[in-house]
């Protein structure tokens, strides 16, 4: 087992990553607003669940994610320049510009088979888990999906098969209360999806998805259980999508009271405030962090801007192996 970093260092690292994710998403919103990037799904407000789960993984673990993936990729160490280039359809992007924002995979980081078909990642995760279990290597599989994806039949098919075949998969539902333009309350009778796990004989936990340390601890416990037993686990992170579904989105359909309540629980502000209050981060260090992240994003935007568009021959390349 790798030694865990002391909690303070971990929390500072998590804050830094969360700030980077926030800055990345804000850069994208800005680029979109100026007509420099196509519409995109941002994960503003969900940074803690991404960072908390990914912090509990080792480099051997594989991640599957979906349309709202920036947090997962950046938490895993993705280069924001290559991500922006991808979103802008440039050749320097992780997928050479053929993915755009909705299905960025980065195999070199272990982020594989990203799918924007809602539930698609759940159907692929079992196969990745099967490879892992048959090849006997180290590493588990983590599958991020939304509360909306849990309404797809594939969610149930995936959990059932993973349970029957003992596949080492950590299912992470990021329950952000919204499924595009439909509130979660309109689509399910329960407040969450974790209870489904028991029906398949799978262990589960629900965690405050806006508290990165709580997410990290829950994920670390789940990952340890999966490594020990080889069996799947379902973790549900309760969080909120603070921006709209897909830029541009004025959120006029959102109850202002709900939005205001969750804004008070903005995970970046919460963690920064707590670290400052506990004396683990002084105001100047926090400002330096912010400055660093801003500089990183400026460099990223410049890289993406300078990256050329794909050559015309790319149109029909990589259709077949």
């Amino acid at each position: 087992m790798t030694a865990l970093p002391p909690v303070e260092a971990l929390e500072r690292m998590m804050l830094e990553r969360m700030m980077l994710i926030r800055a990345y998403e804000e850069t994208l919103v800005d680029l979109h607003g100026r007509g420099r990037a196509a519409g995109t799904c941002t994960a503003i407000g969900q940074e803690a669940s991404a960072v908390g789960v990914v912090a509990a993984l080792t480099p051997d673990d594989l991640i599957l994610t979906n349309h709202r993936s920036a947090g997962h990729l950046l938490a895993r160490g993705a280069d924001p320049g290559r991500m922006l280039a991808e979103v802008q359809g440039k050749s320097g992007g992780y997928c050479g510009g053929k993915s755009g924002s909705l299905h960025i995979s980065a195999r070199e980081l272990g982020v594989v088979l990203t799918s924007t078909i809602v539930g698609g990642e759940l159907a692929l995760a079992t196969g990745v888990g099967l490879s892992r279990s048959m090849q006997g290597g180290p590493g588990i599989v983590v599958c991020f999906f939304g509360d909306g994806a849990a309404c797809e039949g594939r969610f149930h098919e995936s959990l059932n098969l993973a349970a029957v075949w003992n596949l080492p998969i950590l299912y992470v539902c990021e329950n952000n209360q919204w499924q595009a333009f439909v509130h979660r309350k309109e689509t399910m009778t329960a407040d969450g999806v974790a209870d489904h796990a028991a029906a398949y004989g799978i262990d589960s936990a629900v965690v405050d998805g806006n508290d990165p340390l709580a997410v990290f601890e829950a994920a670390a416990a789940a990952v340890a259980a999966i490594r020990r037993t080889g069996k799947p686990f379902l973790l549900e992170a309760m969080t909120y999508r603070l921006r709209g579904h897909f830029e541009p989105d004025d959120q006029s359909y959102v109850d202002p009271g709900e939005l205001a309540r969750w804004r008070e629980r903005d995970p970046v502000i919460l963690l920064r405030g707590r670290l400052e209050r506990d004396g683990l981060l002084d105001a100047s260090a926090a400002a330096r962090m912010e400055e660093q992240v801003r500089a990183q994003m400026e460099a990223a935007a410049a890289f993406a801007e300078a990256s050329p568009y794909p050559a015309p021959e790319e149109l029909t390349r990589d259709v077949y192996a």
């Binding site: 698609g120 159907a123 692929l124 990745v128 099967l130």
Partner: peptide
């Protein structure tokens, strides 16, 4: 089919 696709992409 999804399991086959996921497995195929990762070595089987």
């Amino acid at each position: 089919a999804g399991t086959a696709a996921g497995a195929a992409a990762t070595g089987l």
